[in-house]
Design a protein around this nucleic acid. Structure first.
Lengths: 330, 330
DNA sequence: TGCACGTTTGCTACCGGTAGCAAAACAAAT
DNA sequence: ATTTGTTTTGCTACCGGTAGCAAACGTGCA
């Protein structure tokens, strides 16, 4: 059975289809009598307006594409929850797009564009800047935003957590606690630079103590990759030459590193090796980890993103300040 | 600048708009010459076909709504990743809908329906069955499916992991390890019955040993709720009367319970209290937890769901068998 | 040269709404 | 009863495509 249209309801109620439409348009000019008549007929035929047709006519879909390529990060889930909830509160719907080897950014952006989304949010994804040249959506394309990392792309504002302030705060804390031989574990290279955490952390130690940062890299942003990177480092460096604190680019890496340090090398955290993460993902709070980490102001970031999407705020890069969460690991 | 339409390209190329459409329709009847001419003009005007208009005309959007209300479960993220990736591989796009206090199932289903989605997937959500009576989308509404829990709803098939087999396998393992005083921690009540884990676990102990299950309930499916429930139980029951193994309805609960048992009550896991989870979420594999748990066959489930959506498989409830993952906790 | 046939192109009608103008209906004022 | 003003209703045109028929075109063969 095909679904009923305004036209069907109109015949059933004995009015024109425009009167039917008006019955479903809040604030439209229609008498109570006709409205009741129409609504009753609509009820009988089980009519629901077709939003696709409306979108075509009004040139606005109330859909926002959210591109994610980083599902290994446990922090994504609560962030996504907030983002979708807030979008929905504004009457917007989320088109979740999974970026991976089989589905590139270019592909995703093109598809989202053709579906006429109102905006595209690049959510902490590892896209590279040449994408800009590829995505010549110039003419009438949807506005794009980068969430939770910075953006080098002209015309694509970023909504992120201020890395300079964050790293300064973390560094100050570590300095006070007496750590002197810092290490840094980065995740995937492309994203890494966009987060700016390593750069700032390196700079911090150089300017304060004149100390050179020990750097290591994980393959991806996952606990397994973090574990492997930590294993590589710890097995190659003599105990007396080891760093005394390891800052990980995000919590997922930190969990893996901590697991390896404790269970494979018998190190006590923080006494033998202190560890710091970033994101304050759920397990960080667990006594099993007690990870000292940095919490991004997700509420503010989500709100800012939505304000930009709805043009309630100027579409320009903004940075928010998060807060250090001190636990046992450092 | 408004975006170019087929009409614009037609004028630019000196043909009719239908020829333009044909140039963009694989396998359409068009000469190489016209096609080249059209594609060139399209390139110049930066034309991309409007999928909204196409969807309206063809009556199919290639969009699938996925309703999630359980963002606290870390297992959701990798599952969502697979689901979205597989949908995309079939040319389908995911509309992610967050069900919460401010956005009900009824609301979500109605909205998805009006957006003419091709299918609605209730993904492990805690909806109640009276929803059925509310959602009289009978006439032309999209097909609905329940993923990762069972369905009592007439006409809404479920794709899930066989709870009977799973619980039997877990029970057998626990029996062999010598546990005799079992406990079970359930999460939110509505969802709980739909998973069937508690019922089957209870039944298992009753029939094998004639033992009554000790039951406890968490408020939600989160580590915090699991921690609280465990705290309540452990502080109320004398050590000698305690259960010797706790099966938690999912891993999130198990993490919380394990944290509390170890850090607040000084219990050794599994010696003083064994713990079993369900889902094999990422942290379960970490040495920090080493949680014995049960892994759902997510690949098969996702594939089955998609086959049903695309009508490549009959739309009827199916159950798949998962596998027990034995680690240190039990 | 004429005819039949297959391919290419253009056309009308349609998908289910929205926008905004014009006609019709109603109410109040003279 | 007539005029004026306001509300309600119906209308045409349009959003940007698709479906499928009909005309135009080209080609092979008698």
């Amino acid at each position: 059975m095909k679904r009923a249209t305004a036209q069907n309801v109109a015949m059933e109620a004995g009015v024109s289809k425009w009167t039917v439409i008006r019955a479903f348009t809040p604030g439209a000019s229609i008498t109570e009598a006709s409205k009741a008549k129409v609504l009753e007929a609509a009820e009988r035929l089980n009519y629901r307006p077709n939003l696709l047709a409306r979108s075509l006519a009004t040139n606005s879909t109330h859909q926002v594409a959210v591109l994610v390529d980083d599902f290994a990060n446990p922090h994504k889930l609560p962030f996504l929850e907030k983002l979708t909830a807030s979008l929905q509160a504004e009457g917007l719907v989320t088109m979740l797009i999974n970026i991976n080897q089989h589905y590139s950014h270019v592909h995703a952006i093109l598809n989202a564009d053709q579906r006429q989304v109102d905006a595209i949010v690049l959510f902490g994804t590892a896209f590279r800047d040449e994408m800009l040249t590829d995505h010549k959506l110039g003419r009438g394309g949807p506005p794009m935003f980068v969430l939770a990392r910075d953006s080098q792309i002209e015309g694509v504002p970023a909504i992120s957590c201020d890395a300079v302030v964050a790293i300064a705060e973390i560094g100050k804390h570590l300095l006070e606690r007496g750590y002197r031989r810092p290490g840094f574990m980065a995740g995937a290279r492309t994203l890494s630079t966009a987060l700016g955490r390593r750069r700032n952390f390196k700079e911090f130690w150089r300017t304060t103590l004149g100390v050179e940062l020990v750097e290591m890299s994980a393959e991806r942003y996952s606990a397994e990759a973090g574990a492997q990177a930590a294993r590589d480092y710890l097995s190659q460096v003599a105990p007396e030459d080891r760093i005394d604190v390891l800052m990980c680019e995000n919590d997922a890496l930190a969990f893996g590193a901590m697991d390896v340090a404790r269970s494979e090398f018998g190190l006590r955290v923080p006494d033998d090796l202190a560890i710091v993460g970033f994101d304050n993902a759920a397990p960080a709070a667990s006594p099993a980890y007690g990870l000292t980490t940095y919490e991004q102001p997700t509420d503010q970031m989500v709100k800012a993103a939505i304000d930009m999407i709805l043009e309630r705020a100027p579409r320009e890069t903004v940075n928010f300040q998060g807060k250090l969460v001190v636990r046992d690991s450092a």
